[in-house]
């Protein structure tokens, strides 16, 4: 089935991001800057740089806080846009039939990722209406979405629902009004990220979905949706179950992908490695800022971004799902 193509206009933001208050949006970006530069295996060779001075210094700041000061970002209070350039490993040059003696030079995929990071509370509060409009605009114009869901905020799922519900209605009313999208679904690709996987209680909850065969445990992508459902089912709030239905009603099923993510990852002892008895990578002292305990191990942070990249630029990045 041929789906309508997302808006291909170049200079619009490719990817917009949203999620509830404190769902881990800014930390995600900080971690992304770490993750890309450390990528190995299939994702090896990816780098991230700022596309302009401001974005560059923001990038550095986020990274420094996470890696050196070992602190999480402050809560975001203004809508900030980051223009980052994600540069992939060069693909082999291709021969073309009209000039087989010539090889096109190898080309590295370069994707402009414009992230709009706003305060998570935007949708609940009228005083943010200006920023809200801007965020809606970015959601409408972008072609890829990163939606962050915090599984650790028990009792706040109804907030998450409201947040999602309001945002989607606004976006839908702007996009589905005309006849452009006949099937009544939004054209975006959306990466649904269940964040803070490193939290010991989330790890426990995810136990049966977890792949333990790696250095750090991880919920494989094909288990992520089921795990998300389990997280939602845990909450007695009726709205919880609706969240998934809402997402799947608004987007094409084939354009939704679930990821279980952690911006900081689990603690791994420098000598002994990861120990399931001592997974927490956070030093949490009441009345003090949380500190990151050991090395940052981003889990599933660049994967959603690269997945979106592949979906949006299948030619440069190779189509893979």
């Amino acid at each position: 089935m041929a789906l309508p193509s997302p808006n291909p206009t170049p200079h619009e933001p490719d990817i917009a991001m949203w999620g509830g208050v404190g769902s881990g949006k800014t930390a995600f970006l900080a971690s992304l800057s770490v993750a890309l530069n450390r990528a190995e295996g299939a994702n090896e060779g990816w780098r991230i740089i700022g596309a302009d001075d401001v974005s560059n210094s923001e990038l550095t700041r986020l990274r420094t806080n996470l890696l050196e000061h070992r602190i999480f970002p402050r809560p975001t209070d203004v809508l900030t846009s980051y223009n980052w350039l994600v540069i992939g490993p060069p693909t082999r040059g291709r021969r073309v039939w009209w000039a087989p003696w010539k090889r096109h030079p190898a080309r590295a995929p370069k994707i402009t990722f414009s992230f709009l990071d706003g305060p998570g509370g935007l949708f609940g509060k009228s005083e943010y209406s200006v920023s809200k409009e801007e965020l809606i605009k970015s959601l409408v114009k972008s072609r890829g979405l990163i939606y962050l869901f915090d599984p650790d905020r028990r009792g706040q799922i109804s907030d998450a629902f409201k947040n999602l519900d309001v945002a989607l209605r606004e976006v839908e009313s702007q996009m589905l009004g005309d006849d452009k999208y006949l099937d009544g679904k939004l054209p975006h690709y959306i990466a649904v990220c269940i964040t803070k996987y490193d939290e010991p209680n989330i790890l426990r909850l995810a136990e049966e979905y977890t792949d333990h065969g790696l250095e750090l445990p991880r919920v494989p992508d094909d288990q992520a949706r089921d795990f998300f459902r389990e997280v939602l089912a845990r909450d007695l709030d009726q709205n919880a179950g609706i969240i998934m239905r809402l997402l799947e009603a608004s987007f094409h099923e084939s354009r939704i992908k679930y990821f279980v993510t952690s911006s900081i990852g689990m603690y791994a002892d420098p000598d002994k490695g990861f120990d399931p008895d001592d997974p927490s990578n956070i030093i949490d002292v009441p009345g003090q800022d949380q500190k990151i305990r050991g090395a940052v191990h981003p889990i599933n942070i660049m994967e959603p971004v690269i997945w979106l990249g592949r979906m949006l630029y299948p030619k440069t990045m190779g189509r893979e799902r």
Partner: peptide
């Protein structure tokens, strides 16, 4: 070992 207290486990277990 890690429990609900959020107190980090004893490094010597």
């Amino acid at each position: 070992r890690s429990d609900t207290s959020r107190v980090l486990p004893c490094p010597n277990r």
